[in-house]
């Protein structure tokens, strides 16, 4: 019954998202794409933060790995965007295995600081390896070639409206995958680690290996979002690896709510929309944006989604009782 309502809601949202490029203007379509990219980044990230209770400040590095991975692959191997995305995700996974292996033996503040440090290292590597990465100019000239299935079928993604559906496909896939993971035995084991890591070990769960697994998994989603952004913007920029970018999924999760799947998604929409609106009114947009974020995060404990669902549950309770 509850699951049916959820599926129905998901179908409605999906239909609405499909309608966007036909009903809305160019800029709205662009914003919707940015929201979906941040959404992919954030739902994947929230497997780490919300589900497992690990705070990382370095996921921008995996986002950048996805973008540069796709960029290099496109420049040197093949322009097929599907292979490019796969290459970007693979690059993010490799980097996440390396960084994760060194970080997951630590917890809490040490873990957070280590991920921050590794993220900064990746950022300065990209920034300084100018011959390879283009330095602060970024990697430019990334093309959106048609999606080709072994020459049998070609789907163009050149225009923004076409590319919108390319992103929507991966967005829906990501949300579905994260939903499955949250409901799975693996998801329960992660929740157990969040609730009580020591007891998890005494339940027979190899905690470090699970932490590494979810770290790499969330890194893969970051890489997916990064490679899609590289296609959207036709470039990969070092600031993708910057810690301010790594903080975005953290903010978005707090905004929307850590404990649900929809939390980070709603958070992403609020984040992008608000930034856009505030940027129009003031040059000091960072200041005002920060203040508004603070108010929402402190005002809605448990995030917007958490607060609203608690409110509705309370409102519904007298009728049931």
């Amino acid at each position: 019954m509850k699951a049916e309502a959820r599926n129905a809601a998901a179908a409605v949202v999906l239909l609405a998202l499909c309608a966007v490029p036909f009903l809305a203007g160019k800029f709205t379509v662009y914003l919707a794409m940015r929201i979906m990219l941040l959404g992919i980044f954030a739902v994947g990230y929230n497997l780490l933060l919300g589900q497992t209770g690990l705070l990382s400040f370095g996921h921008g590095a995996f986002y950048a790995a996805g973008a540069y991975g796709l960029g290099f692959f496109g420049l040197h191997v093949s322009g097929n965007p599907l292979f490019g995305v796969a290459a970007g995700v693979a690059a993010a996974i490799l980097l996440a295995i390396l960084v994760g292996y060194l970080c997951v033996r630590h917890t809490e503040i040490y873990f957070a600081m280590l991920t921050l440090a590794f993220g900064m290292m990746v950022f300065s590597l990209i920034w300084n390896a100018r011959e390879i990465t283009g330095g602060d100019d970024g990697l430019i000239g990334i093309m959106r070639s048609p999606v080709s299935f072994f020459g049998l079928l070609e789907i163009p993604i050149g225009t923004d409206r076409q590319f919108y559906f390319f992103i929507l496909f991966f967005f829906a896939l990501s949300v579905w995958a994260v939903h499955r993971i949250r409901q799975s035995p693996f998801g329960l084991a992660l929740a157990g680690i969040r609730e009580n890591a020591r007891r998890s070990e005494f339940a027979g769960v190899p905690v470090r290996r699970y932490r590494l697994a979810v770290f790499v998994l969330s890194g893969a989603f970051a890489g997916l979002a990064g490679s899609l952004e590289a296609l959207l913007e036709s470039n990969a920029r070092p600031f993708m690896a910057h810690w301010t970018h790594s903080a975005e999924p953290v903010l978005v999760s707090l905004l929307g709510g850590l404990s649900s799947l929809t939390g980070p998604l709603v958070g992403s929409a609020i984040f992008i929309a608000m930034r856009e609106i505030i940027q129009r009114f003031t040059e000091n947009w960072m200041l005002w944006f920060g203040i508004v974020l603070l108010v929402i995060i402190l005002g809605f404990r448990g995030g917007v989604v958490g607060t609203l669902s608690a409110f509705f549950r309370k409102a519904a309770a007298p009728g049931e009782g």
């Binding site: 499955r180 993971i181 409901q183 799975s184 035995p185 693996f186 998801g187 329960l188 084991a189 157990g192 998890s200 339940a203 027979g204 769960v205 697994a213 998994l217």
Partner: peptide, 20 residues
């Protein structure tokens, strides 16, 4: 109670199958 049962039977790694 399910966490130790899953860990012992080696099923806790499954990320796709629904717990139900």
């Amino acid at each position: 109670v399910m966490i130790p049962v899953l860990a012992r039977t080696g099923r806790a790694w499954n990320p796709i199958r629904s717990l139900s």
